[in-house]
Design a protein around this nucleic acid. Structure first.
Length: 570
RNA sequence: CGGAGUAUAGCUCAGCUUGGUAGAGCGCUGCCUUCGGGAGGCAGAGGUCGCAGGUUCGAAUCCUGCUACUCCGACCA
């Protein structure tokens, strides 16, 4: 490709509606343009990246036994009624109707369509297992699209659906998909991690999310460097501390703490550490609980995990905190002075608070705290539960070491679905005995367009994108300098360009009539991994200048060693 | 949907408080100069100031309503 013939549209300044780097760089490098909220046009340059990602996904899916098909984006709403998901999906489902007023929706996912297909096409266990996949646009009318293509409303997704006679077969395909996903993200050149995920409302017995590791990631992942344990922080279980509770010595002491409204204040003013304190949060109780509110106890340095809390039968879901007025009415003191001692409410303690001894906590009297309190001597040990977020340094739930936390972007998710859809939609086959048997399903998604944003989040510097080789829009840029004046430079660059093309190198020639600074800046912004500069200065020395996008400096390549370099780029 | 904010040239923004015929930088077009890190000069093109009402002799500016977009929360590939 010649850049003089390619509509490259780079931006020097950062558009102000882009918040995260990947979005900014995708706009600046001219990969995408926004049409409306959550809707993006893939520009020629961006499309090259998209096609490369798709190709890798396709190859790995095929070699893992997947079969590609293509389902419509528009689906009849009837199918969603059948599966029972119409209400569940709610306003995120974009509904439309045709000229006959028949209800349709723009597919946010394709379980219904594929299950409908399967029940028509698959009659015998001999046709199983199969794993259909497609690479198709989806539309989800997200409440809040953001971060460009990272959370768009319309996006490209690779979705696969497998059908099986039994759970063992599903397990095999599931494992094959796990491996395929690992291969895909490896080939894409990304640092990623597969993590245990909640099977949640979809049910089934296994689910993994694949996360690209990046500081800007929306999810926090807890993993153990000494084992293969990795889970979303929201789900990672916090084990009860193994340490013995210290024995009581001095009696507890009521202390005036008028200036201490927070744990932080308290620690500063009274020389305590947060892990010696207990904080008390008041939340609304569920109907199952006979009080209006429930008190939750957490160690001062721990954070409440909403999801875990909501799972407790006494606590109302979704979680909601009591208002100060209500707290004062029930307890007689405001937040900042609350504690479990003489608290007229049901209490749930996080596991970690149970092993504290001599702790500080609010006295349920404004401006006072108890110091040196002990369980059982001063107050009964409450009901215990896992209520907090796991933290770096906590023991791994699998007992193999200590947890570290990284941030990640969810780019893939694999599920063992079971019979949720096949059951409700009547997708059955005849088994060996000639009996109807409900097929068991798995489903496997990759956010293809999101992968691209994630790749940029993970690979960029202050000059722009630093693409991994395999998904760069071009692999090599040839940059002739002063080509208009120097015939020698022009001829050499043209010759080199031809040579690269004949070797099958994915090359772009920057034959634009632009100044060197402009060319360098564009090539770097766009993130082309390899660059060869052809200039008079180099040719005088019988050399070309090579620079990898991630390299600090360029280096001269003597003309007679050029072939070697080109060979490595094929 | 709740909360916060923005809307003026292709992009980044000034002008609005205190109403008086619309500005800059970058980008774009032409010419000259320059040619190893987003150069310099000259000349240009480009805006119903988001939309609709209102106040006023006069509205980008003040008032009301609407719309779009962005950010924070729940959702997700």
């Amino acid at each position: 490709m010649r850049l003089s013939q390619f509509p490259l549209s780079t931006l020097k300044e950062t558009p102000n509606d882009a918040e995260i780097v990947s979005h900014q760089l995708m706009l600046r490098a001219g990969l995408i343009r926004r049409l409306a909220s959550g809707l993006y046009t893939w520009m020629p340059l961006g499309l090259r990246v998209l096609k490369k990602v798709e190709a890798i996904v396709r190859e790995e899916m095929n070699s893992a036994g997947g079969v590609e098909l293509l389902m419509p984006t528009i689906q009849p709403t009837e199918l969603w009624q059948e599966s029972g998901r119409l209400e569940q999906y709610g306003p995120e489902l974009l509904r439309l109707s045709d000229r006959h007023e028949r209800p349709f929706c723009y597919g946010p996912t394709h379980e219904e369509v594929i299950t409908d297909l399967a029940r028509r096409e698959i009659k015998s266990y001999k046709q199983l297992p199969v794993n259909f996949y497609q690479i198709q646009l989806k539309f989800r009318d997200e409440i809040r699209p953001r971060f460009g293509v990272m959370r768009a409303r319309e996006f490209v997704m690779k979705d696969a659906y497998s059908f099986h006679l039994d759970a063992d077969s599903l397990q095999n395909t599931y494992e094959a998909m796990y491996r395929a996903y690992s291969n895909i993200f490896t080939r894409l050149g990304l640092r990623f991690r597969a993590v245990h995920a909640d099977t949640g409302s979809i049910g089934g017995n296994a689910s993994h999310e694949f996360h690209v590791l990046a500081d800007s990631g929306e999810d926090a992942i807890a993993f153990c460097p000494d084992s293969d344990y990795a889970a979303n922080v929201e789900l990672a279980e916090c084990l009860a501390p193994s340490a013995e509770r210290p024995t009581a010595t001095a009696a507890m002491e009521k202390t005036a703490t008028p200036q201490a409204k927070t744990i932080e204040d308290l620690c500063q003013q009274f020389d305590l550490t947060a892990s010696q304190t207990i904080k008390t949060l008041i939340v609304e109780a569920s109907e199952e609980c006979d009080a209006d509110f429930v008190a939750l106890l957490l160690r001062g340095d721990h954070e409440l995990n909403d999801i875990k809390a909501e799972k407790h039968p006494w606590i109302k879901a979704p979680l909601s905190f009591a208002e100060e007025k209500a707290i004062r009415k029930v307890v007689g003191a405001g937040p900042g002075s609350l504690g479990p001692i003489n608290l007229p409410l049901p209490v749930i303690g996080d596991r970690a608070v149970a092993s504290l001894g001599g702790f500080a906590t609010g006295a349920n009297e404004d401006g006072f705290h108890w110091f040196g309190a002990h369980w059982e001597r001063d107050v009964d040990l409450p009901e215990l539960a896992d209520l907090r977020n796991i933290q770096a340094g906590d023991p791994s739930p699998d007992g193999a070491g200590h947890i570290e936390i990284v941030r990640g972007i969810e780019v893939g998710h694999i599920f063992q679905l079971g019979t949720k859809y096949s059951e409700s939609m009547g997708a059955t086959v005849l088994d060996e005995n000639g009996k109807d048997s409900v097929m068991t399903m798995g489903c496997y998604g990759i956010g293809v367009t999101r992968v691209i944003a994630a790749a940029i989040e993970q690979n960029h510097d202050n000059k722009g994108i630093v693409w991994p080789d395999n998904i760069a829009p071009f692999k090599l840029a040839i940059v002739p300098l002063n080509q208009n004046k120097s015939e020698r430079v022009r001829d050499y660059a043209e010759e080199l360009y031809r040579q690269c093309q004949s070797k099958g190198i994915d090359v772009v020639l920057d034959d634009r009539d632009a100044r060197p600074g402009v060319k360098f800046a564009d090539i770097e912004l766009v993130g082309i991994p390899h660059r060869i500069v052809v200039g008079d200065r180099g040719l005088d020395n019988g050399a070309l200048e090579y620079k990898g996008r991630g390299d600090a400096d360029s280096r001269d390549i003597p003309l007679d060693q050029l072939d070697e370099l080109l060979q490595s780029l094929v």
